[in-house]
Design a protein around this nucleic acid. Structure first.
Lengths: 190, 190, 190, 190
DNA sequence: GATGAATGAGTGTTCATTCAT
DNA sequence: CATGAATGAACACTCATTCAT
C-alpha cells in the first residue's frame, strides 16, 4: 500500500490558507481548495473527515505556530517589561512574516466553525505569557485587573492595526511599532 | 407612519442580522434570509440589486447607527478626557444593547464583501472623535502618534472583550468597564 | 408568479417509475430521474422535500390507485366468493396493465424507505376486502384464522407469479388465472 | 481447520448480509462492507471481481444453504403430503433461524443484480420438491396445473408472512404455522 | 410591487475501483 | 496475499438569480 503523503497534507494546509486569503472564507469551497492543492476533492477526505475538520485543524496549526513564535525568545530571568516586549515583538514579527496565516485565523475566528475549537486547550500554549502578567500584578508593576483585560490591551490593538484591509492607508512599521508597545505597556502598567 | 416598503426593508435588515448571528455568514443564503423576513426571495431583489448589496447596506446601516450612538452625548465644551469617555461609553452601551449588530459587523468585516464598502465615506461619520484626538495631541495631552494607533488602543480592546465567543468565561460589566477606560486612556495619554 | 405545474408533478412520477423499472431502485439517482422527467434536478426539489419524499409519495400514489382498481367493481350484495373474485381479478388486471407500477412497488417495499410509509393509513383503503373476509369467517364460509393469513394466500401467489423476472418462462394468462383463483379460494375456504 | 482465506471470505459474506439488513441494499457500499468485515476494500477485490460478484455470490450462497435446509429431512418413502410438509417446515425453520439471510435474498431479488444469477442452475437444487409435486399430479393427489402455480401457493404466502416489516403486528408462530400449511395444502391438493 | 416557480452552476461528500508497497 | 492511499465520476442537495403572473 501507499504511505500517507506529508506533502499532500502540507499542500492542503497551504491551499486552504491561500484561498481564504484570495477569495475569502465564504467562497472557499472544498473543490477549489483541492484544486489549489493539486489533489482530487476525494483525496482531501483521506486526510480530513470533512470540510470542518480541514478548517479547524488548519486554524489550530496556525495558533500553535503562533504560540511557538511568541514563546521562542522567552527568558524568564529578564525584567517583566522586557519579557512582554519580546513576546509582543515575536507576535508582531510572526504576523508580518505570515500575514496570510493571520488573516485566515481572523476569518476563521469570525465564523461559526470557531465554536468547534477547544479554546481552553489552545490557551494553555499561551500560559507563560499569562503567568508573567500575574507575576507583574503580584509585584505591583501591572494593574490588578482581570487578565483578559491585560491581554486585550497588549495584543488586540496591533492585531487590528496589522490588518491592511481594516486600516486603510496605514502600515505598522519600525517607527510606530516602538510607539505601539509603549502605548500597550502604558495601558497595563500600574 | 411607516409605509409598507419601509417595513419590508426593515424586516430584511433584521432578518439578515438575525440569521448571520444564528447560523453565520457562510450559511446565510438569500432564500433563508427572505424566509426569515417573511418575504419572497424575489421581493428581496426589489429592494437590493443582489445579495452583496443587501449585506453591504446592512453593514453600512449598522455603522451609521453606531456613529449616532457614539456621537449622541458629544459635548465639545467638556475636557478632552471626558469627551472621549462619553464616546467610549456610548460605544460600549451600543454594543451591549445590540450584540447582534456588533457580531454581524465583525463577520462582515472579515469577509471579502468588506472591500466593497467605501471606508473613507464611513470614517467621516467618526470624524468628531478623530478631531478631539487631534486637539488632544496639539494640547500635549495625548501622545503624538498616528491617529490609527490612538483609535486602535481606544476601541479595539473593548470590541474584542465584548465578544463572548472570543472571551470565554469573561463578561465586561460595570466593575471592569471603569478599569478598561482607565487603561485605554493610559495608553493614549501623554 | 408562475403556478405549480401538474404536468411536471406527473412527469416526475412517471419518470421515477420508468427509471426504477429500467435500471433498478439502487441506480435511480435524482439527476437521472430529473433528466427523464425533463426538468432540472433543482426543480424536483420544488415538488418534493428530498429524494425520500419523491420515492415515498410515488409509492403511496401507486398503492392508492391499486386500491381504486381493486375496489372499482366492488358489490357487497354478491356472494362472498364472487366479491373476492372481483377484487382479485381487479388486482390482476391492474398488475397486467401497469407492470411498471407493480415492479416499482416491489422494489420500494424491499428498500429501507418502506419504513417511512404509514402502513396503517394505507391499509384502511383495503378495508372493504378485509371486511368481506371477516364476514366470510362469521358465516363459516372462510377458515377462522388470522386475516393476515387469508390475505397472504389470496394475493401473494399471483403477486409473485405476475413478476416475469422471478418466474422465468411462465406467464399468467387467461388459462391459468382461473386455476389460480380456484387455488386461492381453496386455501381460504372452510 | 479453516484456512485464513476462508475466514476472510466468510467475514465478507456475513458483513454483506449484516449491512444490507441494517442499512439496506441501496446504502451498502463496498467500503462499508469491507470495514464491517474488518478487511481493506482492496482485499475484497482479491476474493471478488467487483461489487456485483460479491453480491451475487452471497445470494447464491444463501439460496444453496436454503436448499440444503429444505432437503435435509427429505424422505421419498413418506406420503406426498408429509414430504411436502417436511420441506415446508424446513424452509420455515430456516427463515426463522436466519431472518437476515432471508431479508438479504429479498432485497437482492428485487434489484437489477438478480438478472445476473443463473436461475435455471439454482432451480435444480430444488428439483426434488418439484418431482414430488409432479408425482402428486400423476397420482391425482395434486391439481394438474403449471408447477409454478403449485410452488407459488406452497411457498409465497409464508415467505411474505415471515417478513415483519411487511406484516406489521403479525408473527408466524407455532399456532398459525399449522393452519398455514393446511391452507397451502388445500390450495394445491385436488 | 410582489410573488412562488424554475434553473444552471455549484455545494460537500461518497462511490467503486486501482495503484504502489 | 493484503493493504491504505488515491481518484474521476457520481451522489443528494442548495445556491443566487430570473421569469411569468
Amino acid at each position: 500500500m501507499r504511505t500517507k503523503d506529508d506533502e499532500k497534507q502540507a499542500a492542503l494546509f497551504e491551499a486552504t490558507v491561500k484561498l481564504v486569503n484570495e477569495i475569502g472564507f465564504v467562497s472557499s469551497s472544498v473543490s477549489k481548495i483541492a484544486k489549489a492543492a493539486k489533489v482530487s476533492p476525494a483525496t482531501l477526505y483521506v486526510y480530513h473527515r470533512n470540510k470542518e475538520d480541514l478548517l479547524v485543524s488548519t486554524y489550530v496549526d496556525i495558533k500553535l505556530s503562533l504560540s511557538r513564535a511568541i514563546l521562542a525568545g522567552f527568558d524568564d530571568s529578564l525584567p517583566i517589561r522586557d519579557i512582554l516586549k519580546n513576546a509582543w515583538l515575536g507576535m508582531f514579527a510572526y504576523i508580518s512574516k505570515h500575514p496570510d496565516y493571520f488573516r485566515y485565523a481572523e476569518q476563521f475566528a469570525n465564523s461559526p466553525y470557531t465554536s468547534l475549537v477547544d479554546k481552553a486547550a489552545l490557551e494553555k500554549y499561551f500560559n507563560p505569557v499569562l503567568n508573567v502578567l500575574k507575576r507583574g500584578v503580584e509585584q505591583k508593576i501591572i494593574k490588578d485587573v482581570d487578565p483578559h483585560l491585560l491581554g486585550a490591551f497588549l495584543f488586540q490593538p496591533i492585531l487590528h492595526l496589522a490588518n491592511p484591509t481594516k486600516c486603510n492607508g496605514f502600515t505598522l512599521d519600525e517607527d510606530n511599532i516602538e510607539a505601539a508597545f509603549t502605548m500597550a505597556w502604558d495601558a497595563i502598567k500600574l
